[in-house]
Amino acid sequence: MSDLSNRTLTIEKTFNAPIKVVWDAWTQSEHILKWWAPNGMDIKVIEHEFKVGGKWKYSMPMPDGNEFISEGIYKEIIELKKIITSADFKPMTEGVELQTYFEADGEKTKFTFSVVHPTPEYCKQQEEMGFYNGWGSAIERLETILGTLTNK
C-alpha cells in the first residue's frame, strides 16, 4: 500500500504568467500574504526562511480567538522548478508533504501541486492509538487483507 495515488491530492493548472512571476508569487512572503488565506482573511507570516532546512510558519486568527498555525520545513528547492516541504496544519492535518512543480510553457506556466498524506506506517500508528482519520484507506486495507486471506 505504498501507492502514492491513494494518499495524494493533486491540483494541476496552467497559469497565464511567465514562470518567474509564478515562482516569486509562490515563494516570497510579501506575495504569500496576499493569497494564502482564503477570502482575504488575516494572515501573519511568523517565519519564512526560503532555503533547504529553512522553516516557514504562518498564522491565521480563528473566530474563537485562537490561532490556526500552518508550518513546515523546506526539504528540497530547485530554482524555478520544484519545491518540497513538510507541513503541519494544526490541529487539522499533521505530517503531510507539499510538492510543487513549475514548468515554463512559453509565457505561461504549468503548475502541479500535491499534498501527500502520511505513510501507511504513520496511519497504522495513529490507528493503534485509537485515532481514525483515514477511514477510506482503512476499508481498502481491510479489503486487501481479506483478498490475500481468501486467495490462499
Binding site: I11, F15, N16, V21, A25, W35, W36, P38, V115
Partner: peptide
C-alpha cells in the same frame, strides 16, 4: 476544497500582478 480555493486565490493574485 480548501486547497482548491487556495490555488484559485493564488491564480487570481497572479492575474492581478500580470
Amino acid at each position: 476544497k480548501l486547497w482548491e480555493d487556495r490555488i484559485d486565490s493564488f491564480e487570481n493574485y497572479i492575474n492581478q500582478i500580470q
